[in-house]
């Protein structure tokens, strides 16, 4: 190959890498476990002692990732979309799917009345806090 050809190969490789990298840049927050969008109704957030956080799309993904030492677990109230401490939330397992891509059937609620209404409507049952340590 001629002398100038190899630098061209290098530049083409760098351009290809940068281009595909830009294309793959996530548009929104992603689940750290499965890579799916994490702005779902089943979102779970670990607040770490160092001030950073880890966001997951659903309760199964967050559980599978494991709770880091000293982290606070925040789940999303399905009735309002607001975050609430997992220790203060009510959990129901029902026939309704909250996160489609992994078919999550566990639902979190901030108020017991919302949880009871969901349980009634979707033939659910009470389940303990999945993040209890």
């Amino acid at each position: 190959m001629r002398g100038w050809a190899w630098p061209l190969v290098f530049l083409a490789a760098v351009a290809f890498g940068f281009g595909t990298g830009l294309r793959d840049r996530p548009a929104g927050p992603r689940c750290l476990r499965c890579g799916a969008p994490s702005d779902t109704i089943g979102r779970v957030r670990f607040l770490l002692p160092d001030g950073t956080d880890r966001v997951f799309c659903s309760i199964p993904c967050a559980r599978a990732a494991g709770i880091p030492e000293g982290a606070r677990v925040r789940v999303t109230d399905e009735a309002t979309g607001q975050e609430v401490d997992a220790d203060a939330a009510f959990f129901v397992e029902s026939e309704a799917v909250s996160v489609a891509h992994n078919r999550t059937r566990i639902h979190a609620f901030a108020r017991t009345t919302d949880a009871a209404a969901h349980l009634e409507e979707h033939r659910g049952r009470w389940v303990p806090n999945p993040f209890r340590r």
């Binding site: 190959m1 190899w6 630098p7 190969v9 290098f10 083409a12 490789a13 760098v14 351009a15 290809f16 890498g17 940068f18 281009g19 595909t20 990298g21 830009l22 294309r23 793959d24 840049r25 996530p26 992603r30 750290l32 890579g35």
Partner: peptide, 24 residues
């Protein structure tokens, strides 16, 4: 050839990481 090919592989991966951004 070996020098430029290894350099191109490293450059390609580094450029991809740069383009994609640090966090997942």
């Amino acid at each position: 050839a070996g020098l430029w090919l290894v350099l191109s592989a490293a450059g390609l991966l580094a450029a991809y990481a740069l383009g994609r951004g640090s966090g997942p």
